[in-house]
């Protein structure tokens, strides 16, 4: 791994008296899949929120692709190439599947008033192109769902919502994808399929996409990650391959449970 894609150094985030992240250091290389594990409340989701700019860090620095993005607002961080999913699916339920995926495509949507209101022919061309792209992307996850792209998301089961959410994150072709508990609310088999699909799409995109995944399903972590980091009370207590991490006595005590 020549140089890291994401370099987090000494990041601290406090909420009042609570230190949710405490001097965290973490590197992710291009194309790497990093598992982020730890007990509830250990700061995993806060870590995602800090990277994506939802909560700026109180201390420390975040570099992405060699650029300092510390304290950037969420839209700027997204433009730099970081996309995410949310722990509790945050789709726009009253909008169609297509609308939801296209929301993730902000970088490439032409947003001027003249174009959108008066150049309707050219708008229609752009619309058709992006729609075809969204259908293609969705079809790699779920061909039947790709045919229901005009339907509202409300009423669709969790597995479909997760797929839509991941497509929304991927359509902008990010360099780093943050997955926050993709297995939440799904069965083992559904999770397995979803992960296979993500790996397949990643292969098609040239394997350059790096992923950080928060997950409680150790089977998922073991199968897909190159490396794991364990958080506890906002600190990184261990880092290494899943096997090494799982064998670490500190980790067992904090998370996996000991006799």
């Amino acid at each position: 791994m020549s140089g890291s894609l994401l370099k987090v150094a000494g990041v601290t985030r406090r909420f009042g008296g609570l230190t949710a992240l405490d001097g965290l250091d973490l590197d992710v290389g291009a194309g790497e899949i990093l598992g982020l594990i730890g007990p509830n409340g250990s700061g995993k989701t806060t870590f995602f929120n800090v990277i994506t700019g939802v909560f700026p860090p109180n201390a420390g620095s975040i570099h992405f692709g060699g650029h300092d993005i510390t304290g950037f607002a969420p839209p700027a961080i997204y433009r730099a190439g970081i996309a995410r999913t949310f722990q509790r699916s945050r789709l726009c339920l009253e909008l169609s599947v297509l609308d939801n995926i296209l929301i993730g495509n902000q970088l490439r949507l032409t947003r001027g008033f003249i174009f959108n209101l008066l150049r309707r022919r050219r708008f229609a061309d752009q619309y058709r192109a992006f729609r075809a792209e969204a259908v293609d992307l969705l079809a790699t996850f779920d061909p039947p769902l790709a045919r229901r792209i005009e339907e509202p998301v409300a009423g669709m089961p969790m597995i479909l919502r997760r797929r839509i959410e991941i497509c929304r994150a991927l359509i902008s072709r990010p360099r780093l994808l943050l997955l926050d508990e993709p297995s939440a609310g799904m069965t083992h088999d559904e999770t397995r399929h979803l992960m296979d699909d993500i790996l397949e799409v990643r292969r098609r995109l040239g394997g350059e996409l790096a992923i950080i995944i928060i997950e409680h399903e150790m089977g998922v972590i073991e199968r897909i990650t190159d490396r794991c980091a364990v958080l506890n009370f906002g600190q990184k207590i261990c880092e290494g391959s899943y096997r090494a991490v799982a064998a670490d006595p500190l980790v067992q005590q904090a998370y996996l449970g000991v006799e």
Binding site: P75, Y78, R84, F86, L95, D99, L107
Partner: peptide
């Protein structure tokens, strides 16, 4: 589309640029 996204979920909208 952008206005809808802003109305429904500001945080998610901001995370998508």
């Amino acid at each position: 589309l952008s206005m809808d996204a802003v109305r429904i979920d500001e945080t998610a909208a901001a995370c998508f640029g």
